[in-house]
């Protein structure tokens, strides 16, 4: 291991650490994971220096472990994110996020004329990508593409 660096966000004993979140996407991730309703300890911070990304955000959630399906949701806004599982202060598993083929139920269609914005319908999108980068979400219903910068998370 390299020399010990000062921690920007306090370490957790057990739980999940999500690292390498783009600095401006922190609150979208909080929304996707529904952390507002989390009853355990949640610590987060943004605009930390990162060699890889310039600036990044971090989220630490005590005593919660994320399923692959949840982790992959994050990829819609944070394709570079890294999800670490922590047990007894040790990283026991490191996962990178993978963009799913489809996303269902938590993104709002950016087209105001789309039926999903007028009736209670679970949204559904086909994920479009170029290499690993997501270029847009194509609505299953109205067929319009919502670009990454216009993604709004719904609950």
């Amino acid at each position: 291991m390299d020399t010990k660096k000062q921690m920007n966000v306090r370490a957790i004993e057990n739980g999940t650490v999500i690292d390498h979140i783009p600095a401006d996407c922190l609150f979208k991730i909080i929304n996707i994971l529904d952390l507002e309703k989390e009853t355990g300890q949640v610590t987060f911070g943004t605009n930390f220096e990162s060699k890889r990304m310039g600036k990044k955000a971090i989220i630490k959630i005590a005593d919660r472990y994320c399923a692959d399906e949840e982790v992959n949701r994050i990829s819609i806004v944070a394709p570079m994110a890294c999800v670490n599982t922590i047990r007894n202060y040790q990283v026991v598993e490191k996962r990178t996020v993978k963009a799913p083929e489809e996303v269902e139920g938590f993104v709002k269609c950016g087209n105001p004329r789309c039926i999903t914005n007028h009736e209670r319908i679970r949204t559904r999108f086909e994920v479009q990508r170029q290499g690993n980068a997501i270029t847009g979400l194509r609505c299953h219903f109205c067929e319009k593409v919502t670009t990454p910068e216009n993604i709004v998370i719904v609950k």
Partner: peptide, 10 residues
């Protein structure tokens, strides 16, 4: 026919 997009798919 419907004025909202995606209505027919739904």
């Amino acid at each position: 026919r419907h004025s909202l997009e995606g209505a027919a798919r739904y």
